[in-house]
């Protein structure tokens, strides 16, 4: 396509994956700085929200929020509010407090290797998180809580990047994080929307996105090394990287392999995609304007 031929393409490595921004149009000199500003936001969010770096905001929260409230900026507070909203609406199927469980099962900065069989299981649950809108703070109501935003941070970064593009007048763009969190702004010239395949397989379904977002959550995913980067999947593990918060164990082998949701927000979409994968069905509480595919 001609519009693609003259597109500005920018990419960065963040959150253990590759983020990419495509900005079609002939005015590269105007578009590139806008795209760079969006990418810088993604990189800044990686530094703030990773649990693999001691200097991140999330690590700070995990260290001190059991002792005292931690002040947050409006965007991060809204991220936690959304995480809590999906947690409640999904009956706890989405839970950002499962980090200790993930560590116990071999997914985390300090626990890598074959799945373990932990007993007793660490206590989790988002009832341990208190968000105070009056002071815009987060606090843990018991010690031992550790947050992992792996199920929502990519979508948050994609949403924030798309916001920046729109603020600067971009009318056509595609933003994605590892192809599993996607925001589509407008459409490429002459096209009804952005055509995105729901997987690498040749026969994978293709959806057309326009001014909406897509989030995909899969049962199997690349393993994580200690530095948080993705490595080749180990087929012999046969263990999902997603922990069912209710059972405290990785997802069983049955159920959908992949869930894709389309709706107005990538961060909400990321959280719902994970929740739907855990639930194995569409709950009545998923808002009607969201489309869900079970693959």
């Amino acid at each position: 396509m001609d519009s693609h031929a003259s597109a500005v393409r920018l990419a960065t490595a963040a959150m253990g994956t590759r983020f990419e921004i495509v900005l079609p149009g002939p005015d590269a000199e105007r578009l590139r700085p806008i795209g760079e500003a969006a990418l810088e936001e993604i990189e800044a969010l990686h530094r703030r929200l990773t649990r693999f770096a001691a200097s991140s905001l999330l690590s700070h929260i995990n260290r001190v929020a059991a002792e005292r409230p931690v002040r947050l900026d409006a965007a991060t507070f809204a991220l936690f509010e959304d995480a809590l909203a999906v947690h409640r609406a999904s009956g706890g199927a989405f839970d950002i407090t499962v980090a200790p469980l993930m560590e116990a099962w071999g997914y985390g900065p300090s626990a890598v290797g074959a799945p373990l069989a932990p007993r007793p299981l660490p206590r989790t649950g988002m009832d341990a998180i208190e968000l105070d809108p009056a002071t815009r703070t987060i606090q843990f109501l018991r010690p031992g809580v550790s947050l992992d935003l792996g199920g929502i941070a990519k979508g948050h970064a994609v949403d924030r990047a798309a916001e920046i593009l729109r603020e600067h007048g971009v009318e056509s763009a595609l933003v994605h994080g590892g192809t599993s969190s996607v925001a589509a702004i407008g459409a490429p010239e002459g096209e009804p929307g952005w055509r995105v395949a729901l997987g690498p397989e040749p026969d994978a379904p293709v959806v057309t996105l326009r001014d909406t977002t897509l989030s995909v959550s899969g049962r199997w995913a690349p393993d994580r090394r200690q530095d948080g980067q993705a490595s080749e999947p180990d087929a012999s593990r046969r263990t999902s990287h997603i922990v069912d918060p209710h059972r405290g164990e990785p997802l069983a082998a049955d159920g959908p392999t992949k869930v894709a949701v389309i709706g107005p927000s990538a961060r909400l979409g990321d959280a719902w995609a994970t929740a739907l994968l855990v639930l194995g069905r569409r709950p009545a509480t998923l808002p009607e304007d969201w489309i869900a595919y079970f693959l």
Binding site: A53, A54, S55
Partner: peptide
């Protein structure tokens, strides 16, 4: 072993 990096920027 915990002290390899700073706890803040």
């Amino acid at each position: 072993q915990d002290g390899a990096g700073l706890e803040h920027p």
